Computed example of a mutant assay.
Amino acid sequence: MIVGVPKEIKTREYRVGMVPAGVRALTSAGHTVLVETNAGVGSGIPDSEYQRVGAQIVASADEVWKRAEMVVKVKEPIAPEYERIQPGQIIYTYFHLAGVDPELTKTLIKKKAAAVAYETLQLDDGSLPLLKPMSEVAGKMAIQVGAACLEKAHGGKGILLGGVPGVRRGRVTVIGGGVVGLCAAKVAVGMGAEVTILDVNLERLTYLDDVFLGRVSVLASDTESIAKSVRESDLVVGAVLIPGGKAPKLVSEALISEMSPGSVVVDVAVDQGGCIETCKPTTHDNPTFTVHGVVHYCVANMPGAVPQTSTYALTNTTRPYSRKIADMGLIEAVKSDRALARAMNTYNGHVTYEAVAKDMGYDYLPIMDAFGRK
């Protein structure tokens, strides 16, 4: 199979879809890997490292997309890339279709592309192995950027999360106790903040209570508990996930207006539409905006700011599946692996992931049925 790795073009997106170890795994098995020149530079990987393991360095993204049977990326294709998508092409990346430009879904359907989405590849135990490493990075970063936004110079109220003796600590509320929430809470606790985690899963709350040995408050998530915690917080982290679907709006604009001026919200769920009503996607160039005196940080590709960590963490998990698709072909690979089957968001002009179909207003066709359609 011919596998293409284009350079990411989202604002300040420095990650790359494949590292040299991934290239070697494919070339040693007889596959061809095309890497756009300088695709890995932002992650500290020069072209020479890719050439050393057998990649072909090509001069343009157009050539990568035109020649590749499978394109391996990090972020979803954006508008300049829509025309580059080839009919029937396999695209293996994060898509978050329910939370991005609806034109992307239309384009994938029109081109009959096979969208293999990292974020919905799900094991039988319910875990999301390709989402987990970036959730870990984003969760930890949420507290770092939130703490910076609380500084007066950045529009915040001037609170130090850890406080000092004789002065109260900063109050942090984390909505959602999954991977993002757990990692956010770890950093917040490490900085000395007063931390509350809310989740609807009581078993998860029990686990979090055990992990933190009583150093955080764990609360059952409902309208009242969210409202009370958010009002009293200096920093709120939105960490809610519905695999493949839009995040529920759990914090209303009215509630945001009740927070004290200079408070901060960081919505990690923004790439799936966000769980805070006032949030909208921002970029690393212009990461924040203010609503009702509350600073909002809503960068949709947060891990792109730390690419040397993020790229290797991500590709450690994506590599085995790209190799399986290349070795077996997409259809046989999907038939042999239920996790990979769940990653299929579109195929041959159909939407093959139920939550995406529901949120985007398309008919849903299970992937095994789609394989039988012409």
Score class of each variant (00 low, 15 high):
193 A>S: 09
295 V>F: 09
307 P>Y: 06
184 A>Q: 06
147 A>E: 15
179 V>F: 08
47 D>T: 11
352 T>P: 14
29 A>C: 04
36 E>K: 01
165 P>R: 01
248 P>N: 04
315 T>Y: 03
189 V>L: 12
118 Y>L: 06
338 R>F: 10
200 V>D: 07
138 A>R: 14
132 K>F: 11
65 W>T: 09
339 A>I: 12
205 L>K: 11
57 I>K: 06
23 V>Q: 09
280 K>N: 07
341 A>M: 13
140 K>Q: 07
99 G>L: 14
73 K>C: 05
143 I>R: 08
338 R>A: 12
229 S>M: 07
65 W>D: 09
32 T>F: 01
9 I>W: 02
138 A>I: 11
29 A>G: 07
134 M>S: 13
323 R>D: 03
327 D>V: 05
177 G>L: 05
370 A>K: 09
309 T>G: 11
8 E>M: 03
220 A>G: 07
358 K>H: 11
184 A>G: 14
351 V>W: 10
149 C>F: 09
328 M>C: 06
97 L>H: 15
79 A>K: 12
176 G>T: 10
227 A>S: 14
275 C>H: 12
320 P>R: 07
161 L>F: 05
109 I>P: 08
176 G>I: 10
41 V>C: 03
126 G>D: 00
369 D>S: 13
339 A>K: 13
91 I>R: 04
330 L>M: 08
277 E>M: 10
316 N>P: 03
114 A>M: 09
67 R>E: 15
212 F>G: 02
261 P>F: 01
62 D>K: 15
287 P>W: 10
312 Y>G: 03
22 G>K: 09
314 L>V: 04
210 D>P: 00
353 Y>V: 13
76 E>I: 00
346 T>L: 12
149 C>I: 06
2 I>G: 01
346 T>E: 11
309 T>M: 14
20 P>C: 07
145 V>Q: 08
87 P>D: 08
208 L>R: 10
93 T>H: 02
130 L>M: 13
166 G>Y: 08
282 T>V: 14
44 G>D: 14
340 L>A: 13
373 R>N: 10
132 K>D: 12
280 K>W: 08
334 V>H: 11
74 V>R: 02
229 S>E: 14
49 E>I: 07
294 V>S: 10
305 A>W: 07
275 C>K: 10
348 N>T: 15
269 A>G: 02
296 H>M: 07
243 P>D: 04
258 E>V: 00
305 A>Q: 10
158 G>S: 06
280 K>C: 05
185 A>Y: 13
141 M>H: 09
352 T>G: 14
318 T>L: 07
45 I>A: 13
